[in-house]
Design a protein around this nucleic acid. Structure first.
Lengths: 104, 104
DNA sequence: CATCTATTTAGAAAATTTTCTAAATAGATT
DNA sequence: AATCTATTTAGAAAATTTTCTAAATAGATG
C-alpha cells in the first residue's frame, strides 16, 4: 500500500466516479464498465489500480467479480490530511509537530 | 482547480513532504529545495504543481518567494472523502445518496 | 551599472500512465 | 465437451509526467 498509490488512484476522474458509484452498493466489473465509454480491458486496468491502492474489495461469484468500496482506506487518507491541516479542534498534534502551537 | 489536479499533486511523495514541511511555517523555494536531492528547476516544477492544485500560497519578498500551505484546499479534499465514505455520524447523506442507509 | 542571489522558464530526454486490440482464463450452460 | 459470458492479461502505441541542463527574469548589493 502507501499513500502514493492511493492518491494516484484518486487522481483520475473516472476512477473517482467508480468509487462514487460503489458508495452505496457493490457492482460487477461489467456494470461499472457500462457507465463508461471505455473498453472492458481499460476498466479492468482502472479497477486494478484502485484495488492495488487498497480502495476496493473484490468478491468472486459465479463468473462475476463484484467490487465494493473499502472505506477504511478512505479514512486513512482523511487522517493524513487532518494531520497535514493541523488539528484545529484539540490543539494537540498527532504527527511531527513538536512545538507549542495550535492555541485553539 | 479541480480534484484531479489536487489528488495528482498529492500523489507524489516528494510533494507531500513539501506540504508537511510547510505545515508549521512558510519556507522559501530555496530552503524547500535544500531538503531534496533535486535541481532547483525540478523543485520549482513541483512547487508549481502544488500551486496549480491550490495547495500553496505564495508571497514574494526581496528576491525570495515564500510558500505556505493552503489548508482550505486540504479541507475540501477531506469533505469529498467524507462524502465518499458516507456520513457515518449523522445518518444523513450530503451527496447523492437517496436511500435509507447509515443506521448508526 | 555590473554582477550576485533566488527562482522560474524552455526544451529535450527518460520514465510512467493510459488506452487499445487480441488472446487467455474461468466459471456457467447446453 | 463445446461454447457462451464475464473479466483479466499481454503487448504495443499514444499521452502525460518527471527530470535535467541551459538560459531568462528580477530584485539586491557592491
Amino acid at each position: 500500500m502507501g499513500f502514493a498509490e492511493t492518491f494516484k488512484a484518486l487522481a483520475d476522474p473516472g476512477r473517482r466516479d467508480i468509487l462514487t458509484m460503489l458508495r452505496d452498493r457493490r457492482m460487477s466489473a461489467g456494470e461499472i464498465g457500462s457507465h463508461f465509454d471505455m473498453t472492458g480491458a481499460t476498466v479492468s486496468y482502472h479497477l486494478n489500480i484502485l484495488k492495488k491502492a487498497g480502495l476496493l474489495f473484490e468478491e468472486k461469484e459465479k463468473n462475476y467479480i463484484f467490487y465494493s468500496l473499502n472505506t477504511s482506506i478512505v479514512e486513512e487518507v482523511m487522517v493524513w490530511l487532518a494531520d497535514l491541516r493541523g488539528n484545529t479542534e484539540t490543539g494537540v498534534s498527532e504527527g511531527g509537530n513538536r512545538d507549542e502551537k495550535n492555541k485553539g
